[in-house]
Simulated scan of single mutants.
Amino acid sequence: MRKLVVSEFLSADGVMEAPHEWHGPYFDDDMAGAVSAQMDASDALLLGRTTYDGFAAAWPAMAGQPGGDHMNGIAKFVVSATLEKADWNNSTVLAGDPAAAVRELKQRDGANITVMGSATLVRWLLGQGLVDEFDLLVHPIVVGRGKRLFQDGLPRTPFTVVSSEMFASGVHHVVYAPRKA
């Protein structure tokens, strides 16, 4: 069975919104290696509508740049009640029951399914018990405002630390797995 892995850049205060505004000074060879390993371990993206729209507008113009060929070539699945057609290369809108569709994707042969951004989707997936790991790059900066990964209303979810590494930049790369009851 494939793993569903949530991969996020986070600030120390849990903000995940607009990392392009704050994570640049911390992007070094260690982080590049971690991001590359995440991409190498995945052959599908699962995205919410807002993240999909942003990625579909940006990534096609980045072919040939770091990560561009991977992001443009990988299979992409979009969870949306309003999107009828996904035009970005290799994109599919999941129709019907999204929980059943994600469970079916996890049963297929292949590598990890990665979720990036997509805060609303991530919180819903966690509530449905569909997340296998959180692969987080926690930056040593307080942003002070913005969308946070974990917000009120989530079920209490204990985690097991799968791995933990501190980069020279101060970024903490930590992988958590929800602890099964």
Rank of each mutant, 00 (worst) to 15 (best):
M166S: 15
E133F: 05
A100K: 13
P155Y: 03
H70W: 15
L125V: 01
N90H: 15
M62Q: 12
D97M: 08
W124K: 09
S169G: 06
Q38V: 01
F150E: 06
D53S: 11
A61C: 02
Y176V: 00
G96Q: 04
P140F: 04
A12F: 13
D30A: 13
G64M: 05
F159Y: 14
S42F: 05
D109A: 15
F9C: 05
L46I: 08
G96C: 06
M116L: 13
P25H: 14
W124D: 06
P155S: 03
G146T: 06
M16H: 02
G24S: 13
L130Y: 07
D152K: 12
D28T: 01
Y52K: 07
T160M: 10
V5P: 05
V171P: 00
D132Q: 08
D43K: 03
Q151G: 14
L47Y: 09
W59Q: 01
F134K: 05
D30Y: 12
A18Y: 12
G144S: 07
A119F: 03
W22F: 12
L149A: 01
P19E: 01
V138K: 06
T92Q: 14
D43M: 07
D40W: 03
M166W: 12
D28P: 02
S7M: 02
D53T: 12
V175Q: 09
V93A: 08
D97I: 02
A168Q: 13
L126R: 11
V35C: 10
G153A: 09
T51P: 08
D28I: 01
V6Y: 08
K3N: 15
V161K: 08
G14I: 01
F27A: 04
A168H: 11
G146M: 06
T157H: 05
E165R: 15
A34Y: 12
A177E: 11
R179H: 12
F77M: 03
R49Q: 15
D135L: 04
W124C: 04
A75S: 14
K147Y: 06
A99F: 00
L125G: 02
H173E: 03
P155I: 00
I113Q: 00
V5I: 15
L47C: 06
G64A: 07
K106Q: 10
R103M: 02
M31Q: 14
R108N: 11
K180S: 14
H70P: 00
G153E: 04
P178Y: 10
E21G: 02
F134L: 15
R2P: 08
G67Q: 09
W22P: 00
G153H: 07
V5S: 10
N90L: 03
S80P: 09
K76W: 13
K180F: 04
V122Y: 05
R156N: 09
E17H: 13
V174S: 05
S118P: 13
V102T: 06
A101D: 02
P178A: 11
L136C: 01
G64P: 10
P140D: 06
T51M: 09
P60E: 04
P178F: 07
V5F: 10
V142F: 14
V122W: 08
R2L: 12
V5A: 09
L46C: 08
G67C: 09
P140A: 02
D69L: 03
D28S: 08
P98M: 06
G68R: 01
F134I: 07
L105S: 01
G24T: 14
D29N: 11
G110H: 08
E104G: 09
A41L: 07
A86S: 10
